[in-house]
Design a protein around this nucleic acid. Structure first.
Lengths: 326, 326
DNA sequence: GTGAAAGCGCTAACAA
DNA sequence: TTGTTAGCGCTTTCAC
């Protein structure tokens, strides 16, 4: 049999659709007897209200779209899990899209999510020039990404994180420090890490050496870049990587070059997910407060959905995970 | 302004709703001129069809629900990412729910997803006795979990994986081998790993030592269990852990006991995600073919949705990642 | 306390 | 080639 509908319940209980709807939503005056009859009929038919019909009427879906590069990356996987938990507690379901750093895919997702009438969006993906984000007045919150003046950004204190990382390297005596970075044309708060690097190097009269790593390059391609770094910079004695994946790859490549970490090369990563701290506790890294960021993202989105004013930028503090690599 | 609807487009273009709908779905005969008029009006109004209304009519949402323990775990994070990609390519959106190994939450999710009229479900969560799974004739596919006779299971070859792990340990001379396992009351194909362990130990006339690790215990709690293991089994020289997280924790605990890996203790893990191979390449582990499993799960689900018959059990081969821990 | 009827935005028979 | 009308399953005025 097809799924029973409200009408079937009404027929079985011998009441009108209105009454069943009232019981369902606990609205208006109802005699106990009627209520009971209706409940019994619902049970008997295994009745399940159809949310799609409700959504059409109420014009809200209680769904939030998440657009992230990929949950396969521990940072985003953990962020997604935290967001999902907090949205669940706020009564929202989560429609997820992994953009894989592909602008086309991101655009398609955005369209699908809009078509699906999501009540809000949390974006952690990193593509440029997706005009559609501006064409909508859907509540949106960005994570670690500046989208436009109207979309609030949740970020960790990237400048301070960069300073902390550099302090570690400089204290341990590194002088020829390389920084790996994402594309600089992205308006990302993560650029503050680079600024901190540059400022600290300048303050110590040291020349900066920055390599850009494309977001969509494979691990193999990244390794090739890192081999290049080691070849081109014989005196390199420190690396401030913009994330823990890059840091790990660099450590692997360093081994190929017979460079010991930390003896010959100090390495500091970035992100400090639980996963990396579990699997690679020796990696010194800057911990982003994922849970707090998720909490702020969700509460900010809820504020937006309720039409409240929200700050444009929310910055949360980072901490250091002291391993042995720096 | 509110989102424009089909009617607004029709009015602006000076045609009927039907015509606009036809243009939208490219159905029936339409003059080029009319089409153009309609397209222009859609552009002018930034028209976006409302999928909720379409879903109500078509009775399909093109959404698939995913119920997993948590995407924060690399195995599930990668599995979710792969499933999402493949479902996207098949034209489906993904509603995700992290059960956090909480039966109540899993039940709530299931209800929400059913209410939301998802077209299918892929379940990787591990709770027992959720009757609702049987009460529905929604197409469902399970990953690494036996749910009932009617729900197809996608799993990797756990028995062979267990054998491979044990072979590694035995070859390197381990004799007092402990196995850590999930709860045995779950009807999980992962139990085959344990069977393989028991069979191999028996074949070598060795006594089995199995510890059960609750799924919802924290890393700290797990570590406590592992300290116990080392205390209670002074002669232990090998561990076959049921997953890489446990393996990592055991290695950490072993260090507390001044046990060197692999000199004093051989360790083999399970799962072999890209993440663990990146962050902890030294860990010898059994690689589950996540991508292939995701592909089979999706194609099986599609078959189910189309009403085709599907095999009840699909088993995919595992491989060994040879590190230095065994 | 309860019901009849209209409508959420869309699609598809059936006409024209 | 295009329009009229009914209806997807639900909620809510408004009337009794």
């Amino acid at each position: 049999m097809q799924n029973p509908k409200l009408e079937d319940v009404a027929a079985l209980a011998g009441v009108s659709k209105t009454t069943v709807s009232r019981v369902l939503n606990n609205r208006g005056y109802l005699s106990e007897k009627t209520k009971q009859k209706v409940f019994d009929s619902m049970k008997a038919l295994h009745y399940q209200p159809n949310d799609v019909a409700r959504q059409l009427f109420s014009k809200e879906t209680k769904m939030v779209g998440l657009i992230f590069p990929t949950t396969a990356n521990p940072f985003f996987g953990q962020m997604a899990a935290q967001l999902e938990m907090k949205l669940f507690n706020a009564g929202y379901k989560v429609l997820i899209g992994n953009s894989m750093n592909d602008p086309l895919k991101e655009k398609e997702y955005l369209q699908k999510l809009l078509a699906n009438q999501v009540d809000g969006l949390i974006v952690g993906a990193h593509n440029q020039n997706i005009a559609e984000y501006n064409n909508t007045n859907l509540p949106i919150v960005a994570i670690d990404r500046v989208m436009n003046d109207d979309i609030p950004v949740i970020a960790s204190d990237n400048y301070d994180g960069g300073k902390k990382a550099m302090t570690l390297l400089l204290k341990r005596g590194a002088r020829h420090i390389v920084h790996t970075d994402g594309p600089t044309d992205l308006q990302s708060p993560a650029l503050d890490r680079r600024r901190a690097y540059e400022d600290m190097m300048a303050a110590n009269d040291l020349p900066t050496i920055v390599y850009t790593v494309a977001l969509d390059s494979s691990d193999a391609q990244k390794k090739e870049t890192f081999r290049q770094i080691l070849k081109e910079n014989k005196k390199i004695d420190g690396v401030f990587a913009s994330n823990d994946v890059d840091a790990s790859l660099i450590i692997q490549v360093a081994a190929e070059f017979q460079k010991q970490v930390p003896e010959d090369l100090l390495v500091v990563g970035y992100d400090g997910t639980e996963t990396v701290r579990l699997f690679k506790p020796e990696l010194t890294t800057i911990i982003q407060p994922i849970e707090e960021m998720a909490a702020m993202a969700v509460s900010t989105l809820m504020d937006r959905i309720e039409g409240k004013k929200t700050p444009h930028k929310i910055i949360l503090p980072v901490t250091v995970h002291q391993g042995t690599t720096a």
